[in-house]
Design a protein around this nucleic acid. Structure first.
Length: 273
DNA sequence: CAGCATGTTTGAAG
DNA sequence: GCTTCAAACATGCT
């Protein structure tokens, strides 16, 4: 589920569990998960300690006691972390394992192998090379407006584009557009000042809410659209209730926009132009 | 079993 | 250069 909030939770988890412990070894089950040659990775990291973290969008950077040695983690669609004692059995899908001299391991869980780990020596250079835009939690309204309005594509794919604003994924974009009363198929360059303002507020609201509830969807406010998604083991009794707009009770529509499954309220999310 | 999936990259085509 | 669309990646879940 790694969109920005989930990555932020993983960042906090790593920071709590794994700093200032010396790395003794790294197990890698499948080297395709590495963006850096295995031997280079091991040589650079064995003997090092993690000393801090930084997150930009869905990217997690782990700093070490050597400033030029930085670990980059991307959690793909299903990546996770698990810190466990080495005497325990390796967690399922822990295909990359950092072993520390204190007898604990940090497992990088990759059920679908879409996840990646690699080395960097300069975060800003990496962000520039990948053209990663400003983080969703810190982008200003004028900056968002400028970046969104210069695109002619549909607003949903624009918000999914990590070069415009970093950290929003499929469900968050649906939620943001719902909270901002914007139709996912409206052209990005036609958004009014009022819409941009609502969009910016919605991004902050959704991201902050998701981080606050540690990305546990079922705990989100009832006013959120996310509850229509099937993978929400809802807190509500009536499963049918999920299919309706929490505000106006219209039936929520499911379509495909920019190649991605999209949920929206056809009554409240209308195209303005 | 078939279909779908929270992400990213790449390539083809207009 | 821009946009759209599809495929690919590899696997798990329903």
């Amino acid at each position: 589920m790694p969109e920005l909030p989930e990555v932020e939770i993983r960042r906090q988890y790593l920071e709590t569990a794994s700093l200032y412990q010396t790395i003794s070894h790294i197990e890698v089950e499948d080297r395709k998960l590495l963006t850096t040659d295995y031997n280079t990775l091991v040589t650079a990291l064995v003997g090092r300690q993690f000393t801090g973290t930084r997150r930009v969008g869905k990217n997690l950077f782990v700093l070490t006691d050597l400033p030029s040695v930085i670990v980059h983690m991307h959690f793909g669609m299903t990546g996770d972390l698990d810190y466990y004692h080495a005497s325990l059995e390796r967690p399922r899908f822990a295909r990359i394992v950092f072993e520390f001299t204190n007898g604990f391991n940090l497992g990088f869980l990759c059920p679908r192998k879409f996840e990646r780990i690699g080395l960097l020596d300069d975060i800003d250079a990496f962000l520039k090379r990948k053209k990663i835009g400003p983080d969703g939690l810190s982008i200003s309204l004028p900056e968002l407006t400028e970046r969104v309005r210069r695109k002619k594509a549909l607003i949903k794919p624009v918000l999914l584009d990590q070069r415009i604003v970093a950290g929003l994924g499929n469900w968050i974009v649906d939620e943001v557009l719902f909270q901002a009363y914007v139709n996912p198929e409206q052209r990005a360059d036609t958004l009014t000042d009022n819409q941009m303002s609502k969009l910016h507020a919605a991004i902050q609201l959704v991201l902050e809410t998701a981080v606050r509830y540690e990305a546990t969807y079922r705990d989100f406010p009832k006013s959120f659209l996310i509850h229509v998604r099937e993978w929400d083991d809802s807190p509500y009794d009536d499963l049918e209730a999920h299919k309706y707009c929490p505000r106006c009770k219209s039936r929520i529509e499911r379509s495909t926009v920019g190649g991605r499954t999209t949920f929206f309220c056809p009554t409240e999310q209308v195209i303005l132009q």
